[in-house]
């Protein structure tokens, strides 16, 4: 039997395997490159970057929850100038396609970042974060109102020129299918989901919220079944490809995500526990394909 073929095509771009990391769980690879050969990833998705540096939220910003965690980092990032000079420069040394996650408080801020990256050959695709629950102004509003989502998508598409634009969706909506269709209507080349679920934790002895932001985004294996359901619903509502994410921690989770309709899969918070998890998932997928006689990984995408 031929060896398992893991490569996939996404929005006209070819990737050697379907695995990337979820934005914000891997930085730009600088820290984890000590632990993980990032040249083996299908792609690297960098932490959200905005037009100017963002301070983020007060601490505590993170807390553990059963089989997961909550965060309210608030998209702290050094801004697009430093990102281009430092982070993209760092990634030049690695043979890995780069998906840049873009955040903003306003449509103009998204456009400003997209414009800076549109002609940069080091960038493979753009992922627009319209779904961060931890930023008060903008961000999630664009991802919860279908008309606004269509508009942001259109305007980012115009500035992105030939770069594929992926809209990253929030699960904190009534109908994920409607939001997927809104992104597609705006001309999105793909969608990615799910971002974190808005959550809350209270310290009953201190009688206070655990996170300074009161609410935070829930991630990790605890949310995986929710993510599978939403990837299924979204992928069946549109013709554009999907990056599935949400609590993927094992090869089985990744295979499940693809069967639900994802063309690519992002590994998220489990990297905090085990940075090399993504490589273990990759070898697990190969083993699964060999054991089940699956020649090409694309054959399982959306089979249900």
């Amino acid at each position: 039997m031929k060896s398992a073929e893991l490569s996939v095509d996404f929005a006209g771009h070819h990737f050697r395997n379907p695995l990337t990391v979820a934005s914000g769980t891997f930085g730009s690879g600088m820290e984890y490159s000590r632990y993980v050969d990032i040249g083996r990833l299908g792609a690297i998705t960098t932490k959200g970057v905005s037009s100017v540096p963002w301070e983020g939220n007060p601490t505590p910003r993170v807390t553990e929850t059963p089989s997961g965690m909550m965060n309210a980092i608030g998209l702290q990032n050094p801004g697009i100038d430093v990102f281009i000079e430092r982070d993209l420069k760092f990634l030049e040394d690695y043979d890995v396609p780069v998906i840049v996650n873009v955040c903003g408080h306003s449509v103009e801020e998204y456009e400003a970042v997209v414009e800076r990256l549109a002609d940069d050959d080091r960038v493979e695709m753009l992922e627009i974060n319209v779904s961060c629950p931890n930023v008060k102004q903008g961000a999630i509003q664009f991802g919860t109102d279908p008309d606004m989502l269509t508009e942001v998508t259109q305007r980012c598409k115009t500035k992105a020129k030939d770069k594929p634009v992926i809209m990253k969706l929030t699960p904190n909506v009534t109908s994920i299918a409607d939001m997927a269709r809104a992104a597609e209507a705006g001309g999105a080349d793909g969608i990615s989901l799910i971002n974190t679920l808005t959550a809350m934790k209270i310290d009953i002895y201190r009688r206070k919220f655990v996170l300074a932001n009161k609410t935070g985004g829930l991630s990790g294996p605890a949310i995986h079944p929710v993510a599978v359901r939403m990837v299924y619903e979204a992928s069946h509502a549109v013709g554009i490809p999907v990056i599935g994410m949400g609590g993927v921690a094992t090869y089985a989770d990744a295979i499940e995500m693809m069967m639900a309709g994802a063309t690519m899969v992002a590994v998220g918070m489990i990297s905090f526990t085990e940075p090399e998890a993504i490589l273990n998932i990759l070898s697990g997928m190969e083993r699964y394909m060999e054991e089940t006689g699956t020649e090409h990984i694309r054959d399982i995408i959306g089979i249900l």
């Binding site: 930085g27 983020g56 993170v62 980092i73 905090f272």
Partner: peptide, 27 residues
């Protein structure tokens, strides 16, 4: 409070007087 412990998640920041050379903000 930390998640990753190695500088990736940005969960455990301390406010700094001057702009931090890594984060480019005062964290």
């Amino acid at each position: 409070r930390m998640a990753c412990g190695v500088g990736v998640c940005l969960g455990c920041v301390a406010k700094t007087v001057k702009e931090d050379p890594h984060s480019h903000v005062k964290n």
